[in-house]
């Protein structure tokens, strides 16, 4: 009994003394911290994606409080979140528009020809170093998912060897843009629903040899759309994302243009309908075989 008492007493005294020391030390050596930084950290998404160019959300919060960055530098936060931060700090929010990533290639396994068998490292960056990977098109998506693995939000899905971005999940941090060895991923305004899903600068017939959904450079879309909605560089046509007075091309342009290959399409189509169906059908046949 006595032993237990002594032990309890000793522990109690140690606890008391160290508690006192810690208490005094916390008062004596306190580092003054800006409560506003903690406030901003609380309002930021906390994904630490690095899309703002800072090391993480805490680092970005410090720079916002210090006035180095406006709150809208955070590509992930919605307009409401940004205005909340601006309101809390009593500063201008700055105009912000949401951006999302889009993979400008439509060549999945059914569309783009496979040139070689590839059994190396299953990673786009590695594949790019071996004769440009297995796909015949030297400008297309590898579909090996380096971007999907790098995405901190899980917004990229690989469907039938083609990377597609789910725009409702994507926050536009730009991590995938830096990862893609073919530079196929672009940050575009979230309102842009129509894209030309081809990034190859080759001439039409060359592309036609290797893929069934290339941009042939026929410019039907340029004629169908309003002025300034598309830009033409050599053979390659792309949507002009610097919105002019005519805005971005809508779904009506897709219908009016009648793109001969179908590489001018909506994000929804790129993501789901035909491709997903094909993938589903393929899976079923595979299951059937088993």
């Amino acid at each position: 009994m006595n032993t237990i008492l002594i032990a309890a007493l000793v522990c109690g005294v140690i606890a008391l003394v160290s508690g006192l020391v810690i208490g005094v030390a916390s008062k004596l050596f306190a580092v003054p911290s800006d409560p506003r930084v903690d406030l901003v950290i609380g309002l930021l998404p906390g994904a630490n994606c690095g899309g703002c160019g800072k090391a993480g959300c805490a680092d970005f919060a410090k720079s916002v409080v210090a006035g180095e960055n406006p709150p809208n530098k955070c590509p992930v936060s919605s307009a409401e979140q940004i205005s909340a931060i601006a309101h809390a700090l009593g500063i201008e929010a700055g105009s912000s528009f949401k951006q999302v990533a889009v993979v400008l290639c439509g060549g999945d396994l059914n569309q783009a020809r496979q040139h070689t068998l590839y059994n190396g490292v299953y990673d786009c960056v590695s594949a790019a170093m071996v004769a440009g990977g297995p796909k015949s098109c030297s400008y297309g998506c590898f579909g090996m998912g380096s971007c999907a693995r790098s995405c901190p939000f899980g917004a990229i899905e690989i469907i039938n060897n083609l990377a597609v971005v789910h725009p409702e999940v994507c926050v536009g941090c730009g991590t995938c843009v830096a990862t893609c060895p073919r530079h196929l991923i672009k940050l575009v305004p979230a309102e842009a629903k129509v894209h030309i899903f081809c990034s190859s600068p080759l001439k039409g017939p060359e592309k036609k040899k290797v893929c069934s959904v290339p941009c042939l450079g026929c410019r039907k879309c340029v004629k169908a759309g309003a002025e300034g909605q598309f830009t033409v560089e050599g053979v390659k046509v792309s949507v002009n994302y610097d919105t002019g007075e005519n805005g971005l091309p809508g779904e009506d342009v897709v219908a009016a243009a009648g793109c001969p290959t179908g590489c001018l399409m909506t994000v929804a189509k790129h993501l789901e309908t035909e491709y997903a169906e094909l993938a589903e059908a393929k899976k079923e046949t595979e299951n059937g075989r088993k």
């Binding site: 059994n119 190396g120 490292v121 990673d123 960056v125 590695s126 170093m129 071996v130």
Partner: peptide
Amino acid sequence: RPLVQHMRRAKAE
């Protein structure tokens, strides 16, 4: 194992 490919990737990186 595709060892050389790994090495090449690391060297490039």
